[in-house]
Design a protein around this nucleic acid. Structure first.
Length: 492
RNA sequence: GCUCCCGUGGUGUAGUCCGGUCAAUCAUUCCGGCCUUUCGAGCCGGCAACUCGGGUUCGAAUCCCGACGGGAGCACCA
């Protein structure tokens, strides 16, 4: 009987200030692209912590920038999350709450805590740098209220700013922008609104009013913490327990759109599901399992230490998942013909897995013709004995364009090389091997290696998307296409 | 440049808040051995770390100061 391997428990460190049943977390992606491993880290943390404390997990689309957000990504991101096995208790869009945001904005203006500004971006930038207040800052509350009304309806060139502290050492406090005008139609709200809150405003407000107790964000927002709480205090809203963690970066796998998008536009990679990419779709297509991603992410934890993780850590997790369940097949890279005149004709059943018998077996019908990897035979001299794995032993008689061999029995001989093989009934197959997309910040021209070879006939029985192991080669995810069977090399 | 954050073996990570039980955890890589009809998996063993310098203390990976190194922010993006 095949026995289940003992699995390591993956657990998260305790959450500060957390009470069972009362924890609420949220994952707030912006619907402007496909999710990648970095998003997965955040989403899994949010989800797992909610689960750990029997709490609630909210999916919130931070769709407050119509210039960037696209309808297709709401669903695409949900698909990605579902693939990861993440379930949310509640889902909504920040854009659904805009009228509420407007009310809060008005409250700030009325309290004298926000003002309308029509300085140019350059002036604002300069003043921030020099810690100088602009003339707009001294607008009266009445003026601001009136301008705000105007902005909501027709005025252009204005923004709403928080009256923070222009003298603060923290640049995020130097009167950050709260609302700006964007005329582009919103993917969901259409042209209903033309004034949109910025992240500083929307993020803080939504975390608070949606009842989130433990919002996680990545470290680059740290400077904005002060602003986050200042705003909530001014609005009289509850302060959540804000937590930050470092971004996840994987060696040779850029996560930023700045680096990925150009490659897609130029057609250098095939799309967002290219197997060289750290997008969830890319990883999936390559054969990385969701369990591996989860274990990997949890093992990273939520520390603030920046780390560049080697992909081999993810591979190791994936291998633990795949090894017990992946069917084994024979694949021959650079096949060379082997003729064995005295070979007995055999009908041989070979299991698909060395220990997991549930995976069944396939039957080979052999004659005197075989195909074996050139690389293996190249390293052997004439006269040497090797074994066709799971079949019988061969002595090499002659090596030329074709190899001639002699059948010399079936008993196992210790320490003989055992190599994979096919009969003449093979299936041609192309395997794509991903390598680092970038090497020292330069695009790696050889990031996608293409290998041609042949596989045993029963490879036809694989399902589309099945992840298998080619013996002595590595794990491969199989796709059946119009042009035949292709494989994506997952890892060794 | 200014401000903030981070700094445990090759790589990641636990421990740092509440100093002693840390001659420092776990994983991965690498190196041996065992096992195995895969150069896979499994099992056993091994190498290998608290950035540096001061200070506080009976005692510091843990607290304080400084230096150095790395990262981030300085948007009408999130």
């Amino acid at each position: 009987m095949y026995r289940e391997k003992k699995t390591k428990e993956y657990t998260l460190p305790p959450l500060p200030n957390a009470e069972k049943g009362k924890v609420v977390t949220r994952f707030p992606p912006e619907p402007n692209g496909y999710l990648h491993i970095g998003h997965a880290k955040a989403a899994i943390m949010d989800y797992e912590y909610a689960k750990l404390y029997d709490g609630k997990f909210i999916l919130r689309f931070d769709d407050t920038n119509p210039d960037k957000d696209k309808l297709e990504f709401y669903d695409a991101q949900k698909e990605d999350l579902q693939w990861l096995g993440i379930e949310w208790d509640e889902e909504y869009n920040t854009s659904d709450h805009l009228s509420k945001h407007y009310k809060l904005a008005e409250q700030l203006i009325q309290q004298g805590d926000a003002y309308v500004c029509n300085c140019t971006p350059e002036e604002i930038k300069k003043n921030r740098k020099n810690r100088i207040a602009c003339k707009c800052r001294s607008n009266s509350i009445e003026e601001n209220l009136e301008l705000w009304e105007g902005i909501l309806s027709h005025l252009t060139g204005y923004i709403l700013r928080l009256k923070g502290d222009m003298k603060s050492d923290n640049t995020a406090m130097r009167d950050p922008t709260l609302f700006r005008i964007i005329e582009t139609p919103h993917p969901i709200q259409g042209d209903k609104y033309r004034v949109w809150p910025t992240y500083d405003f929307a993020g803080a407000v939504e975390d608070s009013i949606s009842g989130v107790t433990h919002p996680f964000r990545t470290k680059e927002y740290e400077l904005r913490d002060e602003c986050y709480f200042y705003l909530l205090d001014k609005l009289g809203l509850r302060r959540p327990y804000l937590l930050e963690f470092s971004r996840l970066s994987i060696e040779g796998m850029p996560v930023s759109k700045r680096k990925i998008n150009p490659l897609i536009e130029k057609g250098v990679v095939t799309g967002f599901d290219d197997i060289r990419l750290p997008t969830l779709r890319g990883l999936k297509r390559r054969g990385i399992t969701k369990q591996a991603i989860r274990n990997f992410v949890i093992s990273q934890g939520v520390s603030k230490t920046e780390a560049t993780v080697s992909f081999s850590l993810l591979e190791a997790e994936n291998r633990k998942i795949l090894d017990p369940i992946a069917r084994r097949f024979f694949f021959i890279k650079d096949p060379i013909k082997l003729i064995v005149e005295n070979a007995p004709e055999k009908k041989k059943a070979i299991p698909y897995h060395p220990s997991n018998r549930e995976l069944g077996e396939r039957i080979f019908e052999t004659d005197k013709i075989f195909y074996i990897p050139f690389e293996d035979i190249d390293s052997l001299r004439e006269g040497v004995i090797f074994r066709l794995k799971d079949l019988f032993n061969i002595r090499i008689l002659e090596k030329n364009k074709v190899v001639y061999g002699e059948y010399i029995g079936e008993e196992l001989i210790p320490d003989t090389l055992r190599i994979q093989w096919t009969t003449s009934r093979y299936i041609p197959i192309t395997v794509f091997i991903p390598h680092s997309l970038y090497i020292n910040d330069e695009f790696n021209e050889n990031s996608l290696e293409e290998i041609h070879g042949i596989a045993e006939e029963s490879i036809k029985n694989t399902s589309h998307g099945e992840i298998i192991q080619f013996e002595r080669f590595g794990f491969v995810r199989i796709e059946h296409t119009d042009k035949g069977i292709i494989g994506f090399f997952t890892h060794r």
